[in-house]
Every structure is written in structure tokens, then in C-alpha cells.
Simulated scan of single mutants.
Amino acid sequence: MRYVAPARGTIDPEVFLRPPLSAWPAHAPWVRADAWPGIDALNAARPATMRERFVAQTPALLDDGLHYEQRIAERGDIATRESNWHDLFNAMVWLRYPDIKRALNLQQVIDIARMGTKDRSRAQYAMTHFDEAGVIVALRDHRLLEAWDAHDWHALFWRERDAWHDGRISIDLFGHALMEHALTPGKLLVGKALVFLARGLRDSAVTACAEGVRSGRLLRDPLDLRPLPLSGIPGWHPENGQESFHRQAACYQPRREGRRYPAPLSI
């Protein structure tokens, strides 16, 4: 069933105090105010190095015959529906992670030129999954992979709960659809993760992600992505402070028979 976001003004304010929405304080007025930010407000927040700009998605704009990704590549125009949660969160991700967004656009346009606008490659599916639900994981304790590989969610999120506080594992949420779903209190969120074995700064995983996508080394197949039940991370769900949550949460699915995950990239 297609998700329908709650109307502005009806949202429980508690969702803005919990990840992932609490991690965007610079844009808090855009999501918490009574009125929607306009296109001009979105553009005024762009970093000086950002060539792309947000443009209102109108019938006249769509009459140009260009694919959404082609319009960005050729004109720098990001078609944006006004008064729309999904597109507002997409704009916020563009503002925080422009290099990754630009890298995705580059690879999407390459495949559109090869496949046309009706067919899609495995890489395009992978990139779309990441764009909508992507999570960038910086892992500093390789031993946590044993539990993750086995879908031993009780171990990853309860027995190793301290790892999410002490920096042995950390995430940057990229997928704007996850942000939209987080508007519904208690909704169970599952991300699609790229994992980097990090020894340096957390930002190095974001940089490595952008470089890997731009070069075509990453996101060549949807199976490159690992499921990560974000609602298990401390603070992400109001009930996950209880061990019982980690034994029965519906977002905790067993590993499919024969499923294998790629090794994390060292950075």
C-alpha cells in the first residue's frame, strides 16, 4: 500500500524530537512551521558551490519532454512539488549531500542514455532504492558484521547497544522517503545500507560514498544494499528501550536462504 504522509499541522510534535527528523535542526522551521517553505526559501539555502536549483514542478515544466534526471543534468533544474513532504525532504537531502545526489544523477543519466526512458537497469533500481531509503554506515568494529550478516538483530541492537553510542557504528541517513515515513509516530523504519569500514572521520564515509557512486563502483545492483532496521537504533523508536522490542519487532526479518552481503569498503 502506498504511504500517505499526514497533513501539515496534524503531526505529533514528538516525531521531530526523535531521529531521523531531529538530526536536521537547520531546517526545523521548514518541517515544524504552519506554512510550507517556498521554492525561493529552498534556493536561498543552497551552498555556494551548488549549481543545481529547485524549480516548481508545473505542467509547463514537464512539457519540456525531459526525464527528471535529464533535466537536472542538462539544466540544473530539480523539479519540486510545492507543499509536498516527499519533495521537501528530497530538497533537504540535496542541500546536505549534494555530491552524492550529483553522483547519482550522473549515473542515472548514463543509464538513461543506454536504456532509454522506459526500461531500467539493475543499477538504476539500486540507485533509486538508495535515493529513497539509503543509509550510509560508518563501521569501526568489524565484529558487528557477524550479527548483521546473520540478521541477529537482538545482538546488533540490544546486546551491542553501546556500539550505537560509543562510535563503533554510526549512520548518515540519506533516503528522503525514510524521512517522510518518520512523520508517522511509531512507524517501523528499515533502511538500505552501504557500509564503510572507517578508521578516520565519520565524514569520510560520506565522501567515499559520493566517490564510489560517481565512479560507477557502487550501486550496480539492488543486492549491493544491506537491510538495516533503523527502528532498532537507540532513540529511533519509543519502545526500543525494552529488550522485548528486539525479540519481536516486525521490522526484524530473518535472512533469506542463500542471501550474502558484500564486504564493507575500507576507507
Score class of each variant (00 low, 15 high):
P6A: 00
P19S: 02
P20Q: 01
W24T: 06
W24V: 11
W24R: 05
W24I: 12
P25D: 01
P29F: 14
P29V: 13
V31K: 02
V31S: 06
A35G: 09
L42W: 07
N43H: 15
A44W: 08
R46W: 08
T49W: 15
M50D: 02
R51V: 03
F54H: 04
F54A: 00
A56I: 04
P59W: 02
L61S: 13
L62N: 12
L62Q: 14
D63Y: 09
I78F: 07
N84A: 10
L88H: 04
L88R: 00
F89M: 00
W94R: 00
D99C: 04
I100N: 01
Q107Y: 07
Q108Y: 12
I110H: 11
I112C: 02
R114M: 11
G116P: 07
S121Y: 11
S121W: 05
R122Q: 15
A123G: 15
E132N: 13
V135H: 05
V137G: 08
D141A: 13
L145E: 05
L145R: 03
D149P: 09
W153T: 09
A155M: 12
F157D: 00
R161G: 02
D162S: 15
D162N: 12
W164G: 01
I171L: 13
L173H: 09
L173S: 08
L173A: 06
H176L: 01
G191S: 05
K192Q: 12
K192I: 09
L194M: 10
V195Q: 01
G200V: 08
L201S: 14
D203T: 14
A205I: 05
A205K: 00
V206G: 03
T207D: 06
T207Y: 06
C209I: 00
C209N: 01
V213F: 09
R214E: 12
G216D: 08
L218D: 00
D221N: 14
R226I: 07
P227E: 04
S231Y: 07
G232R: 02
P234H: 01
P234I: 04
G235T: 07
W236M: 06
E239L: 11
E239I: 12
N240F: 08
S244R: 13
S244M: 09
H246D: 05
H246R: 04
R247V: 07
Q248D: 15
A249H: 09
C251Y: 05
Y252A: 02
R256W: 07
G258L: 05
R259I: 04
R259P: 07
L265K: 06
S266Q: 15
